[in-house]
Amino acid sequence: MFKYILKRLGYMLLALFVIVTVTFFLMRLAPGSPFASERNFPPAIEEKLNETYGLNNPWYIQYKDYLIDAATFNFGESMKYKARSTNDMIAESFPVSLTLGIEAMLIAIGMGVLLGVISALYHNKFPDYAATIIAVLGISVPSFILASVMQYFLAYKLDLFPTAGWNGFIYSILPAFAIALAHMGFIAKLTRSSMLEQSNSDYVKMARAKGLGKWKVVFKHSLRNALLPVVTYLGPLTAGVVTGSFIVEQIFAIPGLGKHFVQSITNRDYTVIMGTTVFYSIILLFTVFIVDILYSIIDPRIKLKGEKKS
């Protein structure tokens, strides 16, 4: 187990290195610079700025500095906003995104599994059709359209929710749904097919032959096995929720990490891009890692490599 974790951590470092490198070169390849956007600096000042931030050094020096910065998590100050360190920006905005993300994941998993189970239990009956329609709508409507539609009808027209901003739980409901719905639909379909497969299996028939009631069979037997594919989906789900937050945070003007990330890219704010990229990468790599461990706990047939067989 210990050996396995070490090996995984090694791979994660390698992956992180590749991501950081690719980001660096993409960043440099994109036209423009942090100081090129709105204000027109006199050339002398721009020269001075470039020098301060080391942008005049040859690329390999910049790359080396950049790697050292990344390795020490010292991303420096924002190039756009004076006297704001990248780390502070992340520390400030991440809790907002985290709250939103967790809410979205809970909605996606909770409602997705519920819909899927209902579908499977009422296979080819009305509740199945209703749940399937919800799931398909969720999957096929893009989150930005959903966000705008909900904003217009539920917030603006009906005034049930605040339109935008971040000022308490009620502000998080619409954006969380906007991020979650596509994933909810996907999880619902996944759970449905996996539940149906389990319900036709011999051990479920055996559980019925033991005299267990319908619901006991579902909760004690089929559901746990049916949820294995859903656990596998937790990794991609996290990635999806993160990327979903980029757009949705913009639409709802939420001061989260996603918003900063998008802005930093349009601003060519190199230090912030680097900081947020490294941060996101670590989160995603860790999620995948944790999902793998979780999976081996839920499914006793899976033994992590390097773990001793009993």
């Binding site: 299996s201 011999d202 559980a207 032959a209 005299g211 319908k214 096995n225």
Partner: peptide, 28 residues
């Protein structure tokens, strides 16, 4: 009814299935 039957299944009548590889719950 199914509910009345579940008092009989496993209790008065029980069953051994053909394929032992699939008739046990793999995660229990």
């Amino acid at each position: 009814t199914d509910k009345e039957m579940s008092k009989i299944r496993g209790n008065d009548i029980s069953m051994i299935f053909q394929d032992p590889m699939t008739s046990l719950n793999p995660t229990m």
